[in-house]
Amino acid sequence: FDGGATHIDGSYFEGGGQVVRNAVALASITGQKLRISDVRANRRPSGLAYQHCTGVELVTRICDGVVGGAAVGSTEVRLAPGTIVPGRYVADPGTAGATALLAQAALPCLLLAGPLQNGGEEMEALGKGGGASAAAKERSGTESGFEQEGKAGEHVTASVSLVDYADDTEQEEAGPSHKEGMGAGKEGSAVTGGGFSSLLLRGGTDASKAPPIDYIKEVLFPTVKRLLGVELEMHVKRRGFYPKGNGELTVTITKSVERGKCLPAFSLTERGNVTSVHVRAFTAGALPQHVSEEMLQSARAVLDSFFSSPAFASPPPVQYESVRETPESAFGNGAGILLLAETSTGCRLAGSRVLERGQKGADAGREAAEDLVGDLRSGGCVDRYLQDQLVVFMAAAEGTSRLLIGRPTLHTCTAVWVAESMASARFRLLTHDGQPATNLLR
């Protein structure tokens, strides 16, 4: 493994799961061997959690690679990528591990994969025979082994590893709750459709220390579509929460980059004015609906105060929505809020919270709104959560990209460092008048 592998110190900067996700994604795109040491050294417990293992395994499958160390608790991951293969993939950490993070890890690879090469027949064969699973098992020789072989019409699940955004310790302590086991692999007939790559992801859709899936659907995906000229669709079939997860969603790439071509560079530097804000709070399961009302009320107080400033001659319309999830639309108990602001130049910024155990709805709503207001005040085109998520696309692109951001977050600095370590991309931070401000980035 180690011959010629790029070494990433997993304890550097943010030192959590983001390093792992970005590094394996870039390894799969560049074809570079990768060794990550001291994985999640800044988390307790350190090492890979279930959701990280699943993410590593998922990307390994997409790039037809060989992985080592993709096991829970592992502090070293080694990946020898092969060639990215478009396909229909399924990943299930078997916990409330965040599906949003799995989608994040897989998306850059799938956007470059091109259309399915055999019209989906290849996937069907995998589902019936489990051949790919067996082959991958033989190739990778993962420590955990493959939990299941595929049967006709069933998802083929593979072995998995770990998880997280900043610190998913809480979700991961519970361990797998699905009796069918955790895994990431290609799937058979369950995801149908045309000749496009897709993901079927199970786990937590609204988990602490990770973006809620609504954020990915309403902010990341629309922004990526707009900036890169690709087409993505997400369908959330069922929300899932800590500790049992069991949420389910599909992501379909209906227009990717032509194989052999690069992602385009982009410029997102004009924020414009806020033209609308949509605030949506939901409750599910045992959490009563008045919790979402509390979230909305406290969020409204923050927004009212902000938009009552003399700076706003005409405040934007703000729409409030309280949603009561049904047993069909959500599994388990949970609540959350997302505030989405859209601007006249097409920027989308959001604040969000998943209700923590014991947390008051009013506190979650206020915090989410304060996040959004803070990001609007900064004047950037993206919120604090999107800035680091776009770094990998800038790094892979052909040409020079520019992104107007608020103060760089630790996650952004980490993503930049990983991108520069794994690829020949070079990042700079500039003030509005073009002066270097690199001390903030480094």
């Binding site: 870039l26 795109i29 560049t30 074809g31 060639t83 990215i84 690879c109 470059l112 994969a113 980059v257 194989r259 052999g260 071509k261 690069c262 992602l263 560079a265 530097t269 924020r271 004015n273 806020v274 902000f306 938009f307 700076a311 706003f312 609007l376 005040r377 900064s378 004047g379 950037g380 800035q387 770094v391 800038m394 790094a395 892979a396 692109a397 052909e398 040409g399 020079t400 990209s401 520019r402 992104l403 107007l404 951001i405 608020g406 103060r407 760089p408 952004t412 690829a423 020949s424 991309a425 990042f427 700079r428 931070l429 500039l430 003030t431 509005h432 073009g434 401000a437 903030l440 980035l441």
Partner: peptide, 20 residues
């Protein structure tokens, strides 16, 4: 709203032109 220019920066990147 806000005060663009005091708390925002341009993140600029020369991409690596990666493909597969």
């Amino acid at each position: 709203f806000g005060d663009p220019g005091t708390e925002s920066w341009i993140l600029e990147c020369d991409g690596a032109a990666l493909n597969v």
